[in-house]
């Protein structure tokens, strides 16, 4: 279980995250929703240890993450960044392999267990066929799947994904969300920032709605994505009949 207590965090003197407290349980897929600039990415970066919080604590299984070394923390939390960045000419397999960075030896060696985990994460993201291709020769959707495979290769109990489906076509969006849902069903805690409220409603078990760095609503999607919250947070109306998500054709 991850516990966030009175978290204040941001860039320089300005705190974007304003006193957030929340908790996530094993098996939950939590969708962070909110307008641009509401603090979704800042919250994820703080949880991942990229930004040091001004105050407050983040505990995992009762232990404060701030007391962990960066390597130990990296084994607990896997972070999938919003930007799809990798060395252009690097082959896919080597990119996925980087997920094992917290476990490798001083010269980059990877154990046989690590290799099995890499293979399995490539199977789950359907990237085995791409393994020898260079990153810059892949489509946007393929790049997203490869980087998801990299994030899964960490095999961490917590997965944080910052807008993993942005700029993807509907089929890729659904397959990415299905992959994240599968990880949650395996007992992991998945927290993902999403702009697509239909997909958030369809795939998440819980939603944290952010506005101006504060969680203004949290709970199951049906409860959070109501007309009042949508109006206050996004200035939009709830669609008639609620959110309806697309399905894959087969």
């Amino acid at each position: 279980m991850i516990h966030i207590n009175n978290l204040l965090s941001g860039y320089g003197p300005c705190d974007v995250i304003q006193n957030i407290s929340a908790e996530g349980k094993q098996g939950e897929l939590i969708a962070l929703v909110g307008a641009n600039g509401s603090g979704k990415s800042t919250l994820l970066k703080t949880l991942a240890g990229i930004i040091t919080p001004t105050s407050g604590t983040i505990n995992y299984l009762g232990k404060e993450l701030a007391g962990f070394s960066s390597r130990k923390r990296a084994k607990i939390i896997s972070y999938l960044a919003q930007n799809r960045e990798a060395y252009p000419s690097m082959p896919v397999y080597e990119i996925v392999e980087l997920g094992r960075a917290p476990y490798r030896g001083s010269l980059g060696q990877i154990s046989s267990t690590g290799k099995d985990i890499i293979e399995s994460s490539m199977v789950h993201t359907k990237t085995q066929a791409l393994k020898d291709r260079k990153f810059n020769n892949l489509s946007g959707g393929e790049q997203a799947r490869v980087l998801l495979a990299r994030a899964l290769a960490v095999d961490a109990p917590i997965i944080l994904a910052d807008e993993p489906i942005s700029a993807l076509d509907p089929a890729f969006q659904i397959s990415m969300m299905q992959a994240l849902q599968r990880e949650a069903k395996k007992g992991k805690i998945v927290i993902t920032a999403l702009h697509d409220l239909s997909l958030a409603s369809q795939f998440s078990s819980k939603i944290w709605m952010l506005k101006n760095g504060k969680i203004v609503a949290k709970g199951v999607p049906k409860k959070v994505l109501n007309a009042e919250n949508l109006k206050n947070t996004f200035q939009v109306k709830l669609p008639k009949g609620g959110f309806k998500a697309l399905q894959l054709a087969n």
Binding site: K45, A48, I50, R73, N83, A101, L107, G108
Partner: peptide, 23 residues
């Protein structure tokens, strides 16, 4: 040579590298 593995991780971007334990 010893920072080679960390430099390889850095190819994923600074934020991802930090999340993977690179100081």
């Amino acid at each position: 040579t010893l920072i080679g593995p960390d430099l390889k991780t850095l190819s994923l971007g600074e934020e991802t590298a930090v999340s993977l334990g690179v100081s």
